[in-house]
Design a protein around this nucleic acid. Structure first.
Lengths: 222, 222
DNA sequence: CAAATCCTTACGTTATTCCGTAAAGATGTT
DNA sequence: AACATCTTTACGGAATAACGTAAGGATTTG
């Protein structure tokens, strides 16, 4: 079984249960951090001292408080960790249940398992830890019904997300076009962007931009 | 101290810690439900049998699953409970930290305490339970910085919420006006609705309707 | 009761979105 | 190179949003 595990979870009410699970599995070294920055630091240090962690269990969303934070989410933590210690196994334990979000965690951040916080998630988490240790891939907790073959949300690319993000910040078409030119994102003509928004509206069955953003928010795309 | 407490919380990872707190406080009878409907049923039964609960600790958001549910949120549960057992004390334990939402829980649902799930929330919860028992009123966990005298969010009324809801469903001004006429909500002229939206835009510093809905979603208003 | 004030609605002008069409550019094929 | 196809961009008109102004009605105040 794993020898050294790091838990990144801000809510004390949850970390208690997660640590309990690890104790039940008789993991000799269990560390727990409440901030992403702290987590990265611990992993860096462990890696440098040749005593690396072999598993990271992290939440996705972390509350902001008085402390200034560089890494503000589990996504960012994992991205940073991948640069320091690419071999480290990663389990995400979060409330998020939107297939788009979860898929991108596997495909872009290379996580090993995703466990959705729910009514029976402690047992699911335990299973996922064991499965990860046995080198299974793309482990999903059983309450998540979508399949990886489901193409439905794959078509939405980061380009679309960028548009949606700017729209949700109150940008008008022209401003989006300007921003894209500054960032050398193409296509960046107002007309092209407009067409893309139109595709998104058809895809999500939205009547107008306001409706589209409301839906995008519901899907966790922005 | 309280003799009989009910916990309504769907996430097993959290309920474990909540129940632990109650055990530490040596509450003789601790019950736990994962569904709102089940919670209401237990409270009804206990009330009828003259062995009522004296405290309810509930979450706000509950995950949907295969089971069909009548009550789908903590708000709805509390509303229903108030009709059955108005004397029951109520503590809400939720991740929500938007002042608008929390204020309305105190003002409209008459809860006794609100504890925000956070990095030190178990200790906060313990305090809130003790304070509730000592008949303190409007108990807030200390990480919530807003004050009840702060008028800032009180002005947002259900009328505004209705507008925001319809906007987020893709309605145009004219459709909202029509809908309001059908439901005899006044004012319902397109011009009045437009003016109200404008106030909301100023209030939330939104550039346009799209931006406004994005913000409203973030605030949990819709 | 009259004046003042606020709320609701109407109207007009400009900005932006929405939607179709077409030209220009890029890529691929033979 | 010539052609077909796809992508990007440009343009124009209709619908809606955005913004200012003002008239009419209700409520409050003196």
């Amino acid at each position: 079984m794993f020898k050294k595990v790091l838990v990144a979870e801000d809510l004390d009410s949850i970390s208690i249960a997660v640590v309990q699970v690890l104790e039940e599995l008789e993991i000799p070294t269990i560390h727990h951090v409440k901030y992403c920055d702290e987590g990265l630091l611990k992993i860096k240090k462990a890696s440098l001292e040749n005593e690396p962690y072999d598993l990271l269990i992290t939440d996705l969303s972390f509350k902001l408080d008085h402390r200034k934070a560089t890494l503000t989410s589990g996504d960012e933590l994992i991205e940073a960790v991948n640069k320091v210690d690419p071999k480290l196994k990663k389990i995400v334990f979060s409330i998020e249940d939107k297939s788009y979000r979860i898929k991108s965690l596997f495909n872009e951040l290379g996580i090993n398992a995703y466990v959705s916080k729910g009514r029976n998630s402690i047992a699911e988490l335990k299973n996922a830890i064991v499965s990860s240790y046995n080198n299974e891939e793309k482990i999903l907790s059983s309450d998540l019904s979508f399949s990886f073959n489901d193409k439905s949300l794959i078509e939405i690319e980061s380009y679309d997300i960028s548009i949606l993000k700017l729209l949700s910040k109150g940008y008008i078409l022209e401003s989006i076009s300007k921003e894209f030119k500054d960032l050398s994102i193409t296509p960046n003509g107002t007309s092209s962007i407009e067409k893309r928004i139109n595709k998104l509206k058809i895809y999500f069955k939205a009547n107008n931009n306001v409706h589209l953003i409301a839906i995008a928010k519901d899907f966790g795309l922005v």
